[in-house]
Write a protein that binds this DNA or RNA. Structure first.
Length: 203
DNA sequence: ATTTAGATCCTCT
DNA sequence: GAGGATCTAAATG
């Protein structure tokens, strides 16, 4: 059925992975067997020790950042603002603590379980990093798990051309000095599932 | 339409 | 003890 991405995919350059994740499908199979999935429509690259916006800036190795120091192909999920989780895909070989934040999904399977309804359109239940974790039920129990497994994985879904992909500075990293302006956010141009941003226009 | 405030807790200094 | 890779609701112009 699903054509899973192989381990090699995750070892590539982080910016390359961030772009290529657009159009891919993220799948979470619950213990009950029910499937929650969505197409990735927005990502951000975090470039490790040289990136002031990255949790692993300056090779900061802590309990939280440890997954990023592992080899690419596992998850990095952290808890933030006292109530939200953020899901990342770890990239590159061991020792390069880099990752891609998945910021928004277009739900594909399990819409009812994600809280979609007539009132709440499916493109609004996972259009943000915290919201997508709630929709797919991703939390710290899934931190550091393999993304080629049967529980949580990524798969091919839609082929995109370079014309489908837009970029912008990353969101919510005002503390990150000059990196504030780096164009490391990628999203599918004109896709309704992309998160709403009130910085300067990027729809 | 845009801005502000509150929720809420884990991680690091 | 401070602040955060966020979200929602409520207040304001």
């Amino acid at each position: 059925m699903d054509k899973k991405l192989g381990p090699e995919f995750y070892l590539q350059d982080t910016i390359e992975v961030a772009r290529q994740l657009l159009g891919k499908k993220l799948v979470h199979v619950l213990p009950s067997g029910e499937r929650l999935s969505g197409m990735i429509v927005e990502t951000e690259a975090y470039l490790g020790s040289e990136d002031p916006a990255c949790h692993s800036f300056g090779n900061r190795l802590t309990t939280r950042t440890a997954p990023m120091f592992e080899g690419g192909g596992i998850s990095y999920i952290y808890f933030i603002y006292g109530m939200h989780h953020c899901f990342n895909v770890v990239t590159r070989p061991p020792g390069h603590p880099e990752a891609v934040l998945v910021r928004a999904l277009e739900p594909l399977e399990g819409l009812d379980l994600m809280g979609a309804s007539a009132q709440r359109r499916s493109t609004e239940v996972a259009n943000g990093p915290g919201k997508l974790c709630r929709a797919l039920r991703l939390d710290r129990n899934l931190n550091g798990v393999e993304l080629c497994g049967s529980q949580l994985y990524l798969a091919e879904h839609r082929e995109l051309t370079t014309a489908d992909v837009a970029d912008s500075p990353r969101i919510g990293i005002h503390y990150a000095a000059d990196a504030v302006h780096w164009p490391l956010r990628f999203f599918i141009h004109n896709h309704p599932g992309v998160s709403k941003v009130r910085y300067f226009g990027s729809s």
